[in-house]
Design a protein around this nucleic acid. Structure first.
Lengths: 233, 233
DNA sequence: TTCCACCATCTTGCATGCATTTCGATCTCG
DNA sequence: CGAGATCGAAATGCATGCAAGATGGTGGAA
């Protein structure tokens, strides 16, 4: 009785759908623009449309899914302008995370970060999807360790949305070099060097931004909306 | 044809419930801890539980509502620790907003801000609820004018959650002095003085924080039904 | 051929019904 | 008298059904 009171935390079935879809989006199994029909998702997950609808609404609130009334859901396609907004917010939030973290980081925190880096290093060469996810989760781990749950939630959101931006505008294998940048951040934290950590993060995020947005002008598939913006007026 | 394409944006009925409840929470008509029964809300707004559930989930995602499985929804009661996290995130976000805004603010923006201040000034003396809401909306307006939609969304959330903190820990009539502080911020913006605007905002938010975390009020017994009659339409 | 209207089909918006769980009051027993 | 068991009312979790809106293709008229 007293024991299973701990495991009696019934979790809603919509959570399973939410996390499943979220991972599919972040690992770029589902690509921006892909249509998400309630029936299809419900069949795959073995739940009714009611549940799917709840999960989609949640993803919509996070900006991962576009939701138009009477027309259904699709994976969000951030415009270049939105992409810029997301990167700016991300920079602002992650600076705060590192400033805060440098002042309170423990050896155990460092160990957790090292452990994560090891995972990144292992997954990096071959496994594309996992590599993308792990690179993002490094930043989410930093935010968690900062101890500020609000910052952590916001970082989680902007990092997730960055996956969409990468999928839309980025070039394929661009996450390798971020590994050493992550190591630089940890090194600065190990020395409780807040300014250094922020500087490393600035450098890292600028690099990510450039990698993500510079290739967009050249080739690959481009955003129709930003193209039309140019001709509409 | 081409004209009504603009007005053919059917809005879901859950939006009405969402915004109604949100306003009731922000204006402190509904207080932290108040139980929110789906049937009761549905009756007041004239919709089914399905719709109410959607609105509650959205409020939960924003941290305004606590949602426990099988136990229902209640207005969130941020802990002091959460309150601190929220203020820290808010400070970080609003600094960015002002830095950005000072660099691009137009005379039209200034005019909008002045107009809002006029509203605040008018509502301040008597109307408690509206005064609370307007003080928050000043900050949301700043974020909107910054042009960064992501920052704007985040600011919206933290400002809303600050209402809960004020309701829980703040003292009743504390929003008057914030008016002159808002004016200081506008003045700094008018001179395109980013550093000055940030300094004013720092001072303002520190003041708000201090005002917020002083005393707790005795709560009386209130009826959710009669309150919702006022917000249902 | 091109454009428009119309219809079949698919999909979403929403209410309702049923099963399950929670909560509180009464009852029972020590 | 008090602590725990028990039962009923109430609230939630979820699936399903139906109406309304969107999509895409066909046929007719200019």
């Amino acid at each position: 009785m007293a024991l299973n009171a701990l495991k009696t935390s019934k979790i809603p079935r919509s959570d399973a759908v939410y996390f499943g879809l979220r991972r599919a989006i972040i690992e770029q199994a589902l690509m921006p623009g892909d249509k998400m029909t309630e029936d299809v998702i419900g069949d795959r997950f073995g739940v009714s449309r009611t549940i799917v609808r709840t999960a989609l609404a949640r993803l919509h609130a996070e900006g991962l899914v576009d939701l138009q009334p009477n027309k259904g859901a699709a994976i969000a396609q951030p415009s270049l302008s939105e992409a810029h907004d997301i990167f700016e917010a991300r920079m602002c939030l992650e600076r705060q995370v590192l400033t805060r973290l440098a002042a309170k980081v423990t050896d155990r925190d460092i160990a957790l970060l090292e452990k994560h880096i090891a995972l990144e290093r292992k997954a990096s060469p071959a496994d594309g999807p996992a590599s993308i996810r792990l690179a993002g989760e490094f930043h989410i781990l930093l935010a968690d360790l900062s101890g500020n749950t609000v910052l952590a939630r916001f970082v989680d959101e902007v990092v997730s949305r960055c996956s969409l931006i990468l999928a839309l505008y980025g070039r394929p294998h661009s996450s390798d070099c971020s590994l050493t940048e992550h190591e630089q951040i940890i090194e600065a934290l190990r020395q409780r060097d807040g300014a250094g950590a922020v500087a490393s993060m600035d450098h890292h995020l600028h690099a990510v931004t450039e990698r993500a947005l510079l290739s967009s002008t050249a080739d690959r598939h481009r955003d129709i909306r930003s193209i039309l913006d140019h001709y509409a007026k």
